[in-house]
Amino acid sequence: MTQTHDIYTLDTQHYLPVFKRYPLILDHGDGAYLYDRDGRRYLDFLAGIAVNVLGHAYPPLVEAIARQAGRLIHCSNLYYTAEQATAAEKLVKLSGLGKAFFANSGAEANEGAIKLARRHGYRLSPQKSTIISATASFHGRTLATLTATGQPKYREGFGPLPGGFSYVHYGDGDALAAAMDDNTCAVLLETVQGEGGVHVPTRDYLARVRELCDAHGALLILDEIQSGIGRCGHFFAYEHYGIRPDIVTLAKGLGGGVPIGAFCATDSVASAFGPGDHGTTFGGNPLACAAANVVMDTVAAPDFLRHVGDMGDYLRDGLESLRAAYPGRIRDVRGLGLLLGLELDRDGRAIVDACLQEGLIINCTAGNVLRFVPPLIIEREHINTLITTLHRVLAQIA
């Protein structure tokens, strides 16, 4: 077996240094827990950043992947597969939209949505091409999705960037109304902002965005890459708000850990694409779709979604107890379902580091927001451990 120090050395010498890694080499997982090479157990409240929705080594998912790997892992999208057709049917029914397309990641899903929106706008007018997104948003790391991301720090040094994007403050309907005109082809928003600090919109805001898009003949694109797949207590977070987008994008939890992204669009919008207008080599391959079918069947079940809602309420109550215990240190608790954030009065890295030493994996985003996106299978005992550990860590940090 390769020694631990050799793995660190190999990575430092040969892997592009784009991740600020923690000194932890993970070996395997089981349910809500991960284990390192020495067998130490860690309670996982990050889930691969909202990816491992069914936890680790979930037996039906493992069995489906193994069975499909023994039959057909990949074939060209020039041919049909039952796995892809079934996955598309499920996604269309769950979204209430008309057509689905499978990619490999969230960034690719958003790229496809941007292309489709631009082509749809072009059919109405060659000038109808502007896409408005929100400040503090995050939509991916390709050049187009980087430009759509409303955080300048991610774009610095990567110019020239694609044109045709503008930004308004998230949650400000008046600002959006002032920014829109007949050349706006789409508004692109995360239903719940994740990377930007776990920001939840009001019902009135999303309803107004929908009305403004309709008034200007613009599309509403909702990025549910982090908030979808049951994460917020409904299969899609937008179901909380009584609206429906023209395009919705997904990834992260869709394959339960197997890379897959997707976007769904209404039939009228989807008709803007014809053969050759978009494509992918690996997207929607039989292996990924076999995994996605298990995830969708499991997560979309009413009892499963009810569990997510119950655990989200229980976790929020626990986080609120922390805020009551540390009123000067914790500024806010916010989120939806099992996508929750705890805003601190300081940088959160030291708390994340201390929790890791305690056998708890959490994450900090936007500098000072502890983000909790655990596997959707977590139980009260896991949440109790999280809250107890955070109490201990916060008490030790001045």
Rank of each mutant, 00 (worst) to 15 (best):
A100H: 05
G140D: 03
A85T: 12
L143V: 10
G121L: 05
A178V: 04
G96M: 01
C75P: 01
L97T: 06
R118G: 02
F102R: 05
T130R: 12
F102S: 12
R71W: 02
Q151R: 01
G159R: 12
K153F: 10
D172N: 14
A175S: 14
C75Q: 11
S105W: 03
A85K: 12
L161S: 11
K99F: 10
E83I: 08
L161Y: 07
L143E: 11
A178P: 04
K99Y: 14
R118A: 02
H139T: 06
T142V: 04
R119A: 14
E111F: 08
A87E: 14
L91M: 14
A69N: 08
L143M: 13
G171A: 05
I114F: 07
D174H: 06
K128M: 05
A85R: 12
H74A: 14
R67W: 11
F138P: 00
L97Q: 02
A88W: 03
L116M: 11
K93L: 15
E108V: 07
K93N: 15
A69K: 12
E108A: 14
S166D: 10
G171Q: 07
T86M: 08
V92N: 03
G164L: 01
Y122Q: 05
T145H: 05
E156G: 03
T147C: 13
P162G: 07
S137W: 00
G112H: 10
L143P: 06
S76R: 06
L124A: 14
A66F: 10
E156W: 04
A103L: 13
F158N: 07
R123Y: 09
Q151E: 03
T130I: 13
A87T: 15
L78W: 03
F158D: 05
I132K: 02
L97E: 04
S76M: 04
N110R: 04
H169Q: 13
N77S: 08
Y80K: 15
Y79S: 11
K115M: 11
E111W: 08
G150D: 00
M180I: 11
A134F: 14
A109W: 12
Y167A: 01
E111T: 06
A100P: 02
T149M: 01
A144E: 04
G150P: 00
S133C: 03
V168T: 09
E83K: 07
A144W: 02
T86W: 06
P152T: 09
Q84L: 15
A107R: 03
G96P: 06
N110L: 06
A82T: 08
Q84M: 15
A85H: 10
